[in-house]
């Protein structure tokens, strides 16, 4: 335990460790991958078992499945607009994967795979490749007009085009860093205050009394983290939809 050595060790929770014994170690299968599989399984289970009843008046599980579907459908419909329906599976998969990753990470002993930049950047890169491919497929060479707005004078092109290209390339970076930073910050805060509880609790007679303060902070933080977990999944989905809108309509 970190508290026993007298220092706060808030970052070791993000370390990867292979699971499933020697087999997992041989192929580099870490707890992060295990949680991804778990999330995928849970999402599939929610949708399969939730929708198995197909009741007109939905039960709890079906209600959850339907509302998540309708939530993402609303995002895609309102942001991408005309012709956005075919991107619904893509956005829904991303949203559920990120949401379950964020939420699963809040359970004790669980690992937050969205707290790794490699994972979030991988997801953002998929989004980036998809939006670029969609824009190229729909608009062909006109896609490159995206980097130069129509009304601008031609002599400004040497300035505008590099700026627009860098701005376009920064999309996957900002998309991934936002999610990653939010998850890391939240979990570090939780760990720091949890360590305070242990450290203050060992301070003799008044210790347990004082230790309730960081404990109270942690209770509040967990509630806040649940909000952030949902909000970041929402932001990821909505930004993907906005980028898809740009790709489909090119302004």
């Amino acid at each position: 335990m970190a508290a026993e050595s007298g220092s706060i060790d808030a970052l070791s929770q993000f370390e990867l460790a292979p699971v499933f014994g020697p087999v997992g170690a041989a192929v580099g299968f870490t707890q992060s991958n295990a949680h991804m599989l778990l999330a995928a399984g849970l999402i599939t289970a929610l949708l399969m078992f939730g929708m198995a009843a197909r009741a007109v008046v939905p039960g709890r599980l079906q209600s959850l499945a339907e509302s998540s579907y309708e939530f993402v459908h609303g995002i895609v419909d309102s942001q991408v607009g005309h012709g956005g329906k075919r991107f619904f599976p893509f956005v829904f998969t991303l949203f559920m994967f990120v949401l379950f990753g964020n939420m699963l990470g809040l359970f004790p002993y669980a690992f937050t795979y969205t707290s790794h930049l490699a994972v979030t950047f991988g997801l953002a890169l998929i989004v980036f490749v998809v939006i670029t491919a969609v824009a190229l497929a729909l608009h062909g060479r006109k896609f490159f007009g995206y980097f130069f707005p129509e009304g601008a004078p031609l002599w400004l092109a040497p300035i505008i085009v590099p700026v627009e290209v860098v701005s376009y390339l920064s999309r996957p970076v900002s998309l991934s860093v936002r999610l990653f930073a939010n998850m890391v910050a939240g979990h570090v805060l939780l760990k720091v205050f949890a360590t305070f509880v242990v450290m203050l609790g060992a301070l003799g007679a008044v210790g347990p009394l004082v230790a309730t303060l960081p404990l109270a902070v942690n209770v509040l933080l967990i509630g806040f983290e649940i909000l952030v977990a949902f909000l970041q999944a929402y932001v990821f989905a909505i930004l993907t939809s906005i980028y898809l809108h740009d790709a489909v309509h090119l302004h």
Partner: peptide, 28 residues
Amino acid sequence: RLNGPLSGSSASVGFRAGVEVVSALVVG
């Protein structure tokens, strides 16, 4: 209400703006 990219508290908007600046700088 329009769920534009700007919905949320001012702190999260500020954080988002910061991320946008930093990411563009990093890419550049």
